[in-house]
Design a protein around this nucleic acid. Sequence first.
DNA 1: TTGGAAAAGTTGACTCGTTGCACTTTTGCA
DNA 2: TGCAAAAGTGCAACGAGTCAACTTTTCCAA
Lengths: 197, 197
Amino acid sequence: MTVPPVGRRERKKAATRQAIADAALQLFLERGYDQVGIRDIADAADVSTATVFKHFSGKEALVFDEDEDRESELTAAVRQRASGQSILDALRQHVLDTWLPIAAHPQMTEFTNLVDSTPALREYAERMWTRHTDGLSAAIADEIGVDHDNLACVALARFVLQIPVIARGRQDRRAAVEEIFDILTQGWEPPSKPPAP
Amino acid sequence: MTVPPVGRRERKKAATRQAIADAALQLFLERGYDQVGIRDIADAADVSTATVFKHFSGKEALVFDEDEDRESELTAAVRQRASGQSILDALRQHVLDTWLPIAAHPQMTEFTNLVDSTPALREYAERMWTRHTDGLSAAIADEIGVDHDNLACVALARFVLQIPVIARGRQDRRAAVEEIFDILTQGWEPPSKPPAP
DNA sequence: TTGGAAAAGTTGACTCGTTGCACTTTTGCA
DNA sequence: TGCAAAAGTGCAACGAGTCAACTTTTCCAA
């Protein structure tokens, strides 16, 4: 909504927030997540620890950009899909369009290392996706015209939101996403063995 | 393994553990999970807080029986399946055989209410399943003769272990489990609309 | 322009889960 | 019987997160 924060107030607030996030990420990358305390971050950003928690819901949240509207994008992808396109294909395309570019960002590697090497962050990142199962599931159910708690819709939503988690850390993320969507579309079959050496 | 703990030592240890778990569950059910502190539980069980953590890895673990060998049961279900049975069918049968009876236990309702109404416990319960994705995925890959990190196997393991999470809280758990396995077997299709009223 | 309301930030004490340490008691066993 | 290991204790401490009272900054309307 407010792409450029307008008033001085909001600008300063955003600046403080950014200063905290920057200090946190730098310290985390330098020393490792568990070796950095909230007080270290607060000192580095020259604010109090209470201010840190006014801007971020917890220590893990310091590392990730806010969700904001991931859920609305997901539901929009389902609701406003091209006519004749299946829900599954719409989701496939949405994941390919929005998630791949972000995950492929080059200077992402040290950040990815940090997350992968810290269980708390791995779990938090996973929850950032799975948090939206209810919303996505409701959107799917609406499109089809069934109850919001329809089992097939709930299951599909859960499975689809697992895909970025599974594809993360693969060399060819695009191929991985496609392959998993194929499983959901056509059913699972044992992958073919490689020829014996 | 040690179905009846033998020595006096092990019996006493088991008794202490049980006393702690019982005190914790009772207090949680009475006041709610967040309204009970570790110190309350330790007092009720007449032990020190340090002893609580000698027996349980954390507050959430006080509520659940230990895993122990869920993972080995899962991998065994895949590895020792009837000849000619598909991996998916073996997993389907295993989930139906081992998980349904536990989840259907009658006095489970207040326990289920507790878990459902406490986010921390919901997440912990979910992790109790998803923790075994690597083991299950490796077993599947071994059976087929592909690498342990084979994408289709990792994805299947993740999806299958989501099934108890999804089916939880459904009126007819058996039907739910079957339906979700059908999705994995045959691919997802939009469920049919109910007839208009 | 100014006066105040509201937002942002500070401070410090506090709760709570969890750990570490030094110590005592209990138990198993040689 | 004696002794080492296991179990448990008591207590202090740590780090994340909260709370309440207070100060500063910013906005805006009379």
